[in-house]
Simulated scan of single mutants.
Amino acid sequence: MKLPNILTALRIACIPLVVLVYYLPFADHLYYAAGIFALAAWTDWLDGYLARKLNQSTAFGAFLDPVADKLMVCVALGLLIEGHSSWLLTIPALIIIGREIVISALREWMAELGKRASIAVSMIGKAKTSLQMLSIFILLSQTPDTTTAYVGLVLLYISVVLTIWSMVQYLKAAWPDLKSGM
């Protein structure tokens, strides 16, 4: 197994650890959960960098990397929905989760058509992911109704705008194929 794939697998292994630490009743548990999340998010950048630099890109890595990202984001948003108990957080979280499901299904369908490259990750998608990770990190580290939590929430809303924008881009790119399949 190549180093980038090991890092991706470690990112997936961090998910239950984030959940466990988030719920453990000890001082600063939220900071530790957020720190583990940040470390896992950093491996997303690192595994991609190493795969390119070391020429270790694999089909398995191309499959597993986006799965790891989606699992990380969706599980963390689920924690935040429960932990913050606020419709202000729940609505953008559900939009993000819904978009991830739609785009995953679209990518799978386009791959079956042999056209997965037509919906490759864009710069908007990369910016969306970075902003989501930052906002989730901030929100995981805070109890609700703190000033810093509101900053995280604002960043989450900005990431929702990028989430919708990137989804529209992917759907537009796939539209000719979607239309012909109707």
Rank of each mutant, 00 (worst) to 15 (best):
W109I: 01
C74A: 15
L178E: 04
L155F: 15
F63S: 00
M123V: 12
T129P: 00
S104Q: 08
L89K: 02
L171M: 13
G61K: 05
Y170Q: 05
F60M: 10
A127M: 12
D177W: 12
L77R: 10
D47N: 10
L54N: 09
V151N: 05
M110Y: 08
F63T: 11
T146E: 08
I124A: 12
D69F: 07
I136N: 00
L113S: 03
N55A: 11
I119S: 02
L106R: 06
T163L: 07
W87G: 00
A93W: 09
K70E: 06
F63N: 03
A173M: 13
V67H: 07
E82Y: 14
G78T: 04
P92A: 11
I81W: 08
S122Y: 06
F60N: 03
G114Q: 08
Y157N: 12
V168W: 14
L54Y: 11
G114T: 09
S86R: 06
A76I: 05
G83E: 05
A93Q: 07
A173T: 09
L89D: 01
L77I: 11
L94Y: 13
W165S: 04
S135G: 07
L171V: 15
D145M: 10
T143A: 09
G61C: 09
M110K: 04
I91S: 05
P92F: 12
S85C: 03
I101N: 06
L94V: 14
T163I: 09
I81K: 07
D65P: 03
L131Q: 04
Y170G: 02
I81Q: 04
V75R: 05
T143N: 12
P66V: 07
L77G: 01
A76E: 06
W45P: 00
S86I: 13
Y157C: 11
K172S: 14
G125K: 07
L153K: 03
S85E: 13
V73L: 13
I158F: 15
K128W: 09
A174C: 10
Q142S: 04
I81G: 01
L153Y: 12
I138S: 00
R99M: 10
D47L: 12
V154F: 15
R107I: 11
F63Y: 15
S122P: 02
I136G: 00
W165P: 00
M167G: 15
A127P: 03
S135E: 04
F60G: 01
L54E: 09
F60I: 13
